[in-house]
Design a protein around this nucleic acid. Structure first.
Lengths: 223, 223
DNA sequence: CAACAAATGTGTACGCCGTCCACAATTCAC
DNA sequence: GTGAATTGTGGACGGCGTACACATTTGTTG
């Protein structure tokens, strides 16, 4: 529709700045995903609306169907990205553990770090966090690298790893190791939900943080 | 539109069997709410669609706006009903506690009962449970009786009561009483979510039940 | 390089949804 | 009984997800 002479051969896809001049977009899938992520970031899963994503990518609604089977498929992709970010946040917390501690103390610190990283992400990115867990299906045996952090492990695997370290270090009795990830995850996940959608919503972080610390302590003590 | 002579004076609203013959419905609000509850029961919050509720009530879509400000308002009403049912389930569990126990043991049993009742409802009525917590805002200082059970207390208040009993019975150190409802609720709520939408979804109840028991035990020990 | 197939974006259209407005039937209050 | 308030109707609008046919570009193969 443009009267420009198609210029040079623009085969190189521009990753950002999506206003395209060629008929082809270059990397529409990425553009749609990015738009979806931003929508989810600021409005949660329901804000991921297909038509809006295509609008932001400068493309007609149906173009999305060349890259995603349907809206839910796009949401799943956003979800995977959110889980990956979550894993990265947890890894960052893990990396901050004092390496001079003995194995048992390090393992306990790792458990706390996974929990606190989880909570940090929920507080920092509520929209994406809710998107990560609003839809059904959550990763467990799922080795999809799109859901993992830089270290290649997804959030659930990071937690399992921390518990394994505790068990081998003797900080967690073996007979309590089995299924412990479900108990620990329950507490932390529920706490995040209480903050985002529940009776703790809107509380200043100054009051949230100590409660979160108490929660992690409760898990460690009660496990 | 019917050629019937309007029959007798049908001022008495029929609570169920909504096919009406008069211009007025009798109790449309109730009919819409009932329809909304059924929709939520079988499909969660997103399944509560205004037009479908009016369809089931045998009425034109706009009629709903005489009784609910908008869709969200209807969902809120469904939500209140779900919370009330949840409270009732928890009360039922509480009522089953052996009264011959001493105060401390009864208080501990009450804490477990609130948690297990909560989980029972989540497992039995996943759609309504998710509706109760999917939308924002949750009852805490909220004395709305529509959200309470037969005993007049909402789920959060039931939990608080159980913790109070533990504290006065000496089963919970006073310095740990403050905020304990958040810790306990976190664990149980998160566990419910893991079962409904998370990695524990679809697990047979035979495997869920012992895990739930362990969870409640963890809370009691770690609180 | 020509020709054809595959990939990718466009245009049009359908049905569903929430919601707004004006209007009609009914009931209530005086 | 009459006028006002309540409650249901009819029609319309814009937004959404998505299906189908079509156009344009790109990649392949002779």
């Amino acid at each position: 529709m443009q009267d420009e002479p198609a210029a040079s051969k623009p085969t190189a896809p521009r990753k950002k700045n999506y206003p395209r001049k060629t008929y082809r977009h270059g990397d529409l899938r990425r553009a749609l995903l990015d738009a979806g992520i931003e929508l989810a970031r600021s409005g949660g899963p329901d804000a991921v609306v297909l038509r809006e994503a295509t609008r932001q990518a400068g493309v007609v609604p149906n173009a999305a169907y060349r890259h995603f089977a349907n809206r839910q498929d796009l949401v799943e992709a956003v979800r995977a990205a959110a889980l990956s970010e979550l894993a990265a946040t947890m890894e960052a917390e893990l990396a901050a553990i004092d390496p001079s501690l003995d194995a048992g103390a390090q393992a306990c610190a790792a458990l706390r770090a996974t929990g606190l990283g989880y909570l940090r992400y929920a507080l920092t990115q509520p929209g994406l966090f809710r998107t990560a867990f609003a839809t059904h299906e959550t990763p467990v045996g799922d080795a999809n690298p799109a859901k993992a952090g830089p270290g290649g492990l997804n959030p659930f695997q990071l937690l399992s790893q921390a518990l394994d370290r505790m068990a081998t270090a003797g900080a967690l009795p073996m007979e309590r190791r089995l299924g412990a990830e479900f108990l620990a995850w329950s507490a932390v996940h529920g706490f995040a939900m209480l903050i985002l959608d529940g009776p703790l919503r809107g509380f200043p972080e100054a009051q949230i943080a100590p409660l979160g610390a108490r929660l992690v302590e409760m898990v460690q003590k009660g496990l």
